[in-house]
Simulated assay, not measured.
Amino acid sequence: MSGALGDLETAAPELREAVRAFLTTGCNATAAAARLYLHRNTLLRRLARAERLLPTPLSDNLLPVGVALEIHRWRGTAP
């Protein structure tokens, strides 16, 4: 799991949740921001911070990152 998430695995929960919401809305930042009750720019800043923690760009690893985040959540290690 940590292979796909890199340092995002131990980052602030709101960063993981921002990425997860972004992925579950089909990479729609506006919908993800609404789902999280955030301003779109706040979500975009969180995604940028999360992107810097991932070992590879999110756009290149959507499925592995999404699966790793769900596993992380199922284990009770995410909000």
Rank of each mutant, 00 (worst) to 15 (best):
residue 38 L to H: 00
residue 7 D to T: 10
residue 56 T to G: 00
residue 25 T to Q: 04
residue 69 L to M: 03
residue 51 E to Y: 11
residue 32 A to D: 04
residue 23 L to N: 12
residue 75 R to P: 06
residue 8 L to I: 03
residue 35 R to H: 13
residue 28 N to M: 08
residue 43 L to D: 10
residue 70 E to I: 04
residue 34 A to D: 15
residue 36 L to H: 02
residue 15 L to H: 09
residue 77 T to M: 12
residue 10 T to S: 09
residue 44 L to G: 07
residue 25 T to A: 04
residue 72 H to P: 02
residue 69 L to K: 07
residue 75 R to N: 15
residue 10 T to W: 13
residue 20 R to A: 10
residue 34 A to I: 01
residue 31 A to E: 12
residue 64 P to C: 07
residue 65 V to F: 09
residue 25 T to L: 01
residue 58 L to F: 02
residue 43 L to F: 12
residue 46 R to W: 02
residue 66 G to V: 11
residue 71 I to S: 14
residue 71 I to K: 15
residue 71 I to H: 14
residue 19 V to K: 03
residue 39 H to C: 12
residue 78 A to M: 12
residue 65 V to L: 08
residue 7 D to R: 04
residue 21 A to Q: 12
residue 45 R to V: 04
residue 38 L to Y: 03
residue 54 L to C: 01
residue 55 P to A: 13
residue 28 N to L: 08
residue 37 Y to R: 01
residue 65 V to N: 01
residue 54 L to N: 00
residue 47 L to S: 11
residue 79 P to W: 10
residue 33 A to I: 06
residue 22 F to A: 03
residue 37 Y to D: 14
residue 2 S to F: 12
residue 10 T to F: 09
residue 62 L to N: 03
residue 16 R to K: 01
residue 78 A to K: 05
residue 6 G to P: 03
residue 79 P to Q: 02
residue 17 E to H: 05
residue 18 A to M: 08
residue 17 E to N: 04
residue 67 V to R: 14
residue 21 A to P: 09
residue 2 S to Y: 13
residue 20 R to E: 09
residue 62 L to H: 12
residue 38 L to C: 07
residue 9 E to S: 15
residue 79 P to M: 06
residue 66 G to L: 15
residue 29 A to I: 00
